Structure formats: structure tokens, C-alpha cells
Simulated scan of single mutants.
Amino acid sequence: MTASADIKAGDRLVHKVFPPITRHTLALYCGASGDHNPIHVDIDCAKSAGFPDVFAHGMLVMAYLGQALTDAVPPSRLRNFSTRFVAITQLGAKLTCEGIVTELFSEHGERRAKLALVTRDDRGEIKLEGSAVVAL
């Protein structure tokens, strides 16, 4: 993280690009999370529900954003993290997670920053939006 005295509104504190989501990634996430909804790993199930193929778990996309956030800001400085799912993330999507400082303030004797978070695919489509508050 940039020295806290240098941080100002508009600064990008979070930026991480993840490799494309594969079927293998989805299968591993099913096992790790316990979310075995077949729509995420079984193409026949996805097609019967009207989708062209399987797609990523929303919580997998949120986990990517959380990882990008904690790569940029130590977890001990995280005060709040929330997200809103915007769109389905298709198989093969290459996700980019970013966080921009929107506000600087003091609370409980700490200098803090509010971040606007977003996850986009390689076509620029927003998949997840959120916010975080971090102690500087």
C-alpha cells in the first residue's frame, strides 16, 4: 500500500488481474466452498436452465475481489467490505479487480479511506460492485 500520508481521493489502491476462469477453477471452488450447485459445473444442467454454458459462482468472484483488496491492504487494516452482484461471470472470463479511494476520514482515532470496488471482465462488463473501508 502507498504511504498513508500520500493517499488522496481518486487514487487507485487496488488493482489485480486474474487468469481466465476455467472449468477446473469452478470444480476446485465447488470442493473448497461446499457449493455443489450443478449449474456451475454441469453443462447439461446449465443448458437446461437456459444458459449457454456453466458460469462462475458469485462468491468466487467476490473471493477474487477480496484477495485483490487484501493483497493491496493488510487484512488487519480492513474495517468493512461489502459487495453487490451485478452480472453472471461466464466461463473463460478474465477478471480485473480495482479499488479507488472515494473518501478520506477519521473514525475511532484512525485515518481511514473508503474505497469504491469493482470487478470487470475482459470485455469491460461489470460483474461485481462494492465498497471497503480501510485504516490507513
Rank of each mutant, 00 (worst) to 15 (best):
V86M: 11
H57N: 10
V14M: 08
R123Y: 10
K16F: 08
Y64Q: 10
M62D: 08
P74T: 06
K127N: 06
V14S: 05
A72H: 02
M62A: 15
D122V: 02
P19F: 05
L128M: 13
D71V: 03
G109I: 10
R111F: 08
L104W: 00
E129K: 13
G50F: 10
E98D: 15
Y29E: 02
S33V: 07
G109Y: 05
P19R: 11
P38F: 04
S131R: 04
G109R: 03
V54K: 00
L28N: 11
P75W: 04
G66C: 10
R77G: 00
L78S: 09
V54F: 06
Q90A: 15
K47L: 01
H57E: 12
E129F: 01
Y29W: 15
A5H: 14
L91S: 08
A116H: 10
G66F: 04
K8D: 09
R111N: 13
T102F: 00
L78Q: 13
A56D: 05
E98I: 03
K114A: 08
Q90F: 08
T89A: 09
I88N: 09
R112L: 11
D121L: 14
V101Y: 03
C97I: 03
Q67E: 10
K127T: 04
H40F: 10
L28Y: 06
G124V: 13
M59Q: 06
S106D: 10
T89V: 12
A68W: 02
D42H: 04
L28C: 11
F51Q: 14
H15V: 05
G31Q: 09
L128T: 01
D44F: 01
D122T: 05
K47I: 00
A27P: 00
T70N: 07
Y29T: 08
S82H: 13
T102I: 04
C45M: 05
A3F: 10
R120V: 15
F85V: 12
A9W: 00
H40C: 11
G66K: 05
A72S: 12
L60C: 08
R112F: 01
A135V: 13
N37P: 07
H24S: 15
A63W: 08
H108C: 04
F51W: 15
N80P: 00
V17Q: 14
R12P: 00
K16E: 13
R79T: 06
R23S: 12
A135R: 14
G31C: 07
F18S: 10
T25K: 09
T2L: 14
T119G: 09
Q67N: 11
A32P: 01
I88G: 04
R111T: 14
P38R: 02
N80F: 11
V73S: 04
E107Q: 13
D42W: 08
I43F: 00
Q67I: 09
M1R: 04
C45P: 00
L136Q: 05
